[in-house]
Nucleic acid binder design. Sequence first.
DNA 1: CACTAACAAGACAAGTCTGTCTATTTCGTT
DNA 2: AACGAAATAGACAGACTTGTCTTGTTAGTG
Lengths: 204, 204
Amino acid sequence: MPRPTKSEAARSPKRDQLVAAAARLFYRDGYHAVGIDTILADAQIAKMTLYRNFATKEDLIVATIQKRAETISGEVSVAVSQAGPSMRSRLLALFGWYENWFRSPGFAGCAMLRAAGEYPELGSAVHQSVVRAKAAGRANLELILSELDPRRAKELASQIDLLLQGAISCAHTYGDPSQIDHARKAALNLLERAHSPHSPGRGR
Amino acid sequence: MPRPTKSEAARSPKRDQLVAAAARLFYRDGYHAVGIDTILADAQIAKMTLYRNFATKEDLIVATIQKRAETISGEVSVAVSQAGPSMRSRLLALFGWYENWFRSPGFAGCAMLRAAGEYPELGSAVHQSVVRAKAAGRANLELILSELDPRRAKELASQIDLLLQGAISCAHTYGDPSQIDHARKAALNLLERAHSPHSPGRGR
DNA sequence: CACTAACAAGACAAGTCTGTCTATTTCGTT
DNA sequence: AACGAAATAGACAGACTTGTCTTGTTAGTG
């Protein structure tokens, strides 16, 4: 069947092309700042093809967020799984992935946080898709850490996630990739502390 | 002199009114999403009055960021100075201020980070104003912490700042003010560790 | 070969955007 | 009372916005 099944209503070469161009331009210039005509010109795709695959521009934005979430999740999983068995080396692999990202050309912060910023209302479809993606990312981090200490995995995952999200935002704002170093040092401190807690019930 | 000096070319009741309305609307809906006509209607001010005080819309955005930075800096300083003398209580006062903010109605993340997100280019006037404001905030945090241990104040300030910036973004994204709790716990851990470092030269 | 679905190209509607300009009015000062 | 700066109201230009619709072309199907 040369016609590629189509079936579910998602896989289409034109659709992918569109999402790829949109993701690139949205990330570079912002969601409101980029019009669909710019995307169509860049992807060399007709307007009707866009509106056959997506109901609205916001739908296209959601698609770029979902695609980015999948990509990041996959790459991080690979990086962590390729690291040594110790929790420390796994965490360092995770931070290594982020550092590479920060140092890559065209880095401009987190596409998802920026989307949540441009669509600040909680109920917005775009914002909701960011919530899902970020929650999945934190859950994945929790899963990684649960091998160490299942009881504290949730808390430690939240803390390290805050460090990472902060590092992404600050690295972009300052244009300074070395922000990841601060986050890494803090995360290792927190990890050691979780391993050997010598003052248990503190901290509110 | 009943005419209020004017002098420097900044203080004007209409100007302040304009900045206040703009800050409110930009924060609620986003910088690109809000047009100047909306701001003018809200502030009940004529268009020419806007363009007599600001060259462009971006200039108005920069003004809202500067005003917000001043307000936050002042409020945080007061909150910290009103706390007890111990570093722990000072830090708790700082986090208390953030928690109140997160729980206040209409909280929608950090206006400055969102501005940097909508104007991703480093050289942009808006982005630059965010850099200045955020750098000043971190410097202020460093100043607070320098009473504890001047050597580690800079590092600790960066780490806690990352936690705070991450908490702001995540609290908004998830619509969950309790994100500050994770940041606070982590910060207290890092503070204790800075106080009694029992494994010195680790962490890359 | 004939059919059909997908796509390209572009006109079009209806509205929005920023920024400029003119004409009129308000108001504090001399 | 008269002057002048500042504010208002609104028209206006020119460009841009999303989304719809039409027309013609391409390519893979039975």
